[in-house]
Design a protein around this nucleic acid. Structure first.
Lengths: 220, 220
DNA sequence: ATAAGTATGTTGTATTTCCAACAGAAATGA
DNA sequence: TCATTTCTGTTGGAAATACAACATACTTAT
């Protein structure tokens, strides 16, 4: 098995753990490597997952096909990200989505039982791993709740205001920049770009905010 | 301090742990109790949280006030549920929401450092606690992703179809019941009830599904 | 059984969003 | 520099949604 320590060292899951410790932990966690060709399915809806996965190389799409066959890409997994963590809960049921390799990908499989059950003295960094895993999923959680709070607004205007309002809070200033261009912001908020552009213009005309490119300023 | 073991035994966080072990763990986790009167703020937007909280009695609202003063209730915490887990991540920043007691409430505070850092032999059930905490947050995560996948659909029709489609999958049958009445379903999907009722009628007319009360059947 | 209250479906109108198409601005690359 | 591409704002018509109001069906309590 190739040495994945240098790569894993930079992931959230293994952050703060040295290369040598990572190597011994990979053994402890029963790590396995699997390769997927572009377009190949890593998992299919209906399967039962027992491992925690980490994408080492490539790109994966979490996607969903509904009852009538419509395809929908929910998320893109990038190298260093873990996934499948929500399905290692006992009785969590079958996987609701498909996981497909958007390009040639390498995935590491970890034994979740070995992660959550601490092996007393063998792995001094096991506690750190558990912390990291918890922090990662907690962080994901926070982002999801945040996004949900924008998306649950009914109108494009309200979605915009709630998102921008939050960013102002987060950056602690009424002037701030956002990490999206217009199309990305529209996709993030699940609204039409042109309608959103319209709404932004209207909000500016009403004196509630101002913007240039991705720099925004809110006015009370 | 009152004996919370009988109550905690039935929570997800302490499930599978006996009363006596819970009592010793409460000590190990530096548990503290705080009471809140109805309407009192447990936390305010901008605060920094260092504990994991569990609602013992009462009802809390996670709510948000935007830049222009509009109030929005995001979530309701019920007895036995933990909260604040997303903010114990280092550098996770200030709390973005307010936490307000919707009625007289009792909240337990746990020292997160003591949770994630295992005390070797003192607490035999510490591993179980960590597992439970992880399972709880993973479960929450799964629900959020699911809901987000419905909400990111543009139209009421698509939101309905993606939700119903998922329920059919989950219950492994084209006939299933949902845990919502119409108004609750509309709130869950963030759409207008009457518009949703219209759409359901239209879908039935088109022969895509049928329903009586909260019993649905999907047709290919 | 009756009354009161709740849940659901229906209608019409005002508003908002979507969509496609286009034009100017800005960024990119030869 | 010029040409090309990408990004952003704008427009107009079609479609969908929100909102209010009401009728009917179903529940619950007395």
């Amino acid at each position: 098995m190739k040495d994945y320590a240098p790569l894993l060292r930079r992931t959230k899951l293994f952050s703060g753990i040295g290369d040598d410790d990572i190597r011994s932990m990979l053994n402890c966690l029963n790590a396995e490597v699997r390769q997927y060709r572009k377009g190949e399915y890593a998992f299919r809806q209906g399967e039962y997952i027992r491992n925690l996965m980490l994408l080492a190389e490539g790109r994966l799409h979490i996607q969903k096909e509904d009852y009538w066959g419509n395809l929908n890409i929910l998320n893109e997994i990038r190298p260093g990200e873990m996934f499948g963590e929500a399905y290692i809960v006992p009785n969590s049921g079958a996987l609701m989505n498909d996981v497909v390799a958007a390009e040639e990908s390498t995935v590491l499989f970890f034994d979740t039982g070995r992660i959550l059950t601490v092996c007393p003295s063998a792995c001094p960094f096991h506690t750190r791993l558990i912390q990291n895993m918890f922090y990662t999923i907690a962080d994901k959680n926070k982002g999801l709740v945040q996004k949900l709070s924008y998306m649950s607004q009914r109108s494009t205007r309200e979605k915009l205001l709630s998102y921008l309002s939050d960013e102002a809070k987060r950056q602690n200033s009424s002037s701030f920049s956002i990490p999206f261009n217009r199309q990305q912001l529209a996709d993030f908020l699940s609204v039409d770009r042109s309608a959103m552009s319209n709404e932004l213009g209207r909000l500016r005309d009403e004196g509630m905010l101002d913007f240039h490119k991705n720099e925004f300023t809110l006015y009370c």
